[in-house]
Design a protein around this nucleic acid. Sequence first.
DNA 1: ACGATAACTTGATTAACATCAAGGAGAGGC
DNA 2: GCCTCTCCTTGATGTTAATCAAGTTATCGT
Lengths: 232, 232
Amino acid sequence: MRSSDIPEIRSLRLFESMSDSAFDSLMQAAYLQTFPAQLDLIREGDPADFLYVLTEGCVEMYARTGQRETTMGMVWPVGAFILAAVLKDAVNLMSARTVQKSRLLLIPASNVRSAFEADEAFARAIVTELAGCFREVVKEQKDLKLRSSVERLANRLIRFDREMGGTGAFDLPYDKRTLASHLGMTPENLSRAFNTLKPYGVEVDGSRIRLTDMKSLNGLARPDPLIDDRTT
Amino acid sequence: MRSSDIPEIRSLRLFESMSDSAFDSLMQAAYLQTFPAQLDLIREGDPADFLYVLTEGCVEMYARTGQRETTMGMVWPVGAFILAAVLKDAVNLMSARTVQKSRLLLIPASNVRSAFEADEAFARAIVTELAGCFREVVKEQKDLKLRSSVERLANRLIRFDREMGGTGAFDLPYDKRTLASHLGMTPENLSRAFNTLKPYGVEVDGSRIRLTDMKSLNGLARPDPLIDDRTT
DNA sequence: ACGATAACTTGATTAACATCAAGGAGAGGC
DNA sequence: GCCTCTCCTTGATGTTAATCAAGTTATCGT
């Protein structure tokens, strides 16, 4: 792998506190690879052979049963995924595919597990990471069970805006079809939900969103820090 | 606390591999207490002051936003809850209340965190526990997003039956109102869903359930190991 | 055993959301 | 430039699930 990529991976919270020797041996076993858009990386049900670390691009986590499919989450740089399956030496519960051209570090699962055994600091960092992942999914589940689809959209828009600088104007970070699936609705209903939000100051032009009446949008969305804050 | 309770807590996967000294100091700081039914133990938004370990009874995890409330999961003996919030020294994302009279071990959060710092084996056990918790929530989310309410009920009944011996007859482990909320539906719709399942061999008499045509019930439910198996 | 209370069921209605079927707008290829 | 294809939108319709309103059956306490 390119040595120029190592510092940014090293700076991931997951790796920053581990010993140099453990980190180096992990990196020596790892592959850094660039993948084109829309490429399937992992398939649910398959054994978790690698821990994936995304350094550039964007990855969609999704799941299927029977004919139905849904987006479970999006991964942004620098982020790791399928950590839980790797640690439990289990099969993946979710599939993953690139959204855009993406650069990924693939660390063989067995090396991750032995680093976990050998390096105490790494084991501890994993705990923090996993606890965070768990809490994210719990928040997603609360969002799904306690809100209507229009409320979910409104809150997601507020969150996008906040994450992208809070200027009240931003581009959707991925396409509407995927956003709909992530929010647990159909593309048709996402369109209609955007129309429902028009009176609340939500202007849509392609992927460009402008929020011109945050007060009234907040009134509808009623954001809840225990669902919408990513920091806690 | 009663010393007679220690062995069963010690045998929890979370504690079994930790050193005697770390375990003893955790237990010395802990309180073992019995609570009546329907008592609120923790409230979402409050700091996670204790790690809870349920040794007898049953606890419901639930969440609220605005006026709406939903059941997030049930805890059975011997099980720990709000581990993630304790480790992150964060606020609880879920509330908890006893369903029946229950016996609980309360371990101060700061002691859990220092045991986590001091005892390597404990830190590793926590990873396994957390990875398992994460995967459980992911499965719940797939269940919610990929299935209709009737399918969710059918699969839950199949799972109850399996967990309780696979005899085709069992009592619902908690009341229908809570089951409905856990499955993401109203009590009225749960009733109707049971009626929908009657032609598939689902007989209901109060809380007594009999599954008399597993083949046809499985045909409707189409259980998926990546959603319904608790072991993987 | 009795009444009071809560849990559950049923039916009627409404609301939310999905599906089906076109149409239109935009991006990329040549 | 135009064509093609995909993505998105809109409207009509159908399905699913929530709500409202009684009833009915259990459960609990005395």
